[in-house]
């Protein structure tokens, strides 16, 4: 096994990541403005922005889900306890003592176990709840008639808002963790260039060289 610069983030994956990031920032900003923390512009402009950004994100998610399933990339997010404790211990202890990160990226496991678990939670819990409550909020006129509107809308709004706070917390941690490697820049660059250092088995190396030229940086 040796470490190579391998393209781990395909063009679509990078596009997905950055578009999603931009849309989430727009949604958080417009959402908290609708919520009334601040009011930079009129309610209708904010709702319009929020709805358009959310719709775009939903379309993006549909593509992303399709992409995950058809390319097999969903496997990166399979949860595992193997090495999970080591990584957790590293962030809680080892990182202060200057230890090396216990996880080495592998071709089919580009996220460390803690990272994979966090992303899985994001994708299977955080995102769906926001998505469903957001759609329910937007379309409440179609499912709620009469006085029911009053209380059920509040629950939808409350859950939607709470999960927006959780999204904000996720982003803070996500960005902070970019500083934990050798440098912030080094940590961000794979999501820009697509290339990261990955341990390849000889078989993987041979396969990539043979069938996916350009995948390994020479």
């Amino acid at each position: 096994m040796a470490v190579y610069k391998v393209k781990v983030f395909s063009r679509f994956e990078r596009f997905w990541h950055w578009t999603q990031a931009a849309l989430i920032f727009i949604l958080l900003f417009s959402g908290f403005a609708i919520h009334g923390f601040f009011r930079p512009t009129g309610f209708e402009n904010l709702v319009w922005t929020h709805v358009v950004a959310a719709s775009a994100l939903i379309v993006l998610w549909i593509f992303a889900i399709f992409w995950h399933l058809t390319t097999g990339n969903w496997r990166h997010y399979l949860p595992t306890t193997k090495g999970l404790f080591k990584v957790a211990r590293y962030y809680a202890w080892g990182i202060f003592r200057g230890e090396d990160h216990p996880y080495k990226k592998r071709f089919w496991h580009k996220h460390n176990p803690l990272q994979a678990l966090a992303y899985l939670g994001l994708k299977l819990f955080l995102f769906p709840v926001i998505w469903i409550t957001g759609l329910a909020y937007l379309l409440y006129g179609f499912w709620s008639q009469g006085p029911v509107t009053a209380s059920s809308l509040e629950w939808v709004a409350v859950i939607h808002t709470l999960f927006a706070f959780l999204m904000a917390a996720f982003i803070i941690i996500h960005i902070y963790l970019l500083t934990t490697g050798h440098s912030f820049k080094e940590h961000v660059s794979p999501m820009i260039t697509g290339y990261d250092e990955v341990e390849l088995t000889d078989a993987e190396k041979a396969y990539l060289e043979q069938d996916e030229p350009g995948r390994i940086m020479t």
């Binding site: 919520h35 909020y137 709004a157 808002t161 927006a164």
Partner: peptide, 16 residues
């Protein structure tokens, strides 16, 4: 009644 943009649940805001 709950009205978007006017109302908020103060506890959810505090927790959030």
């Amino acid at each position: 009644f709950y009205m978007p943009g006017r109302d908020r649940n103060e506890w959810i805001d505090r927790i959030g």
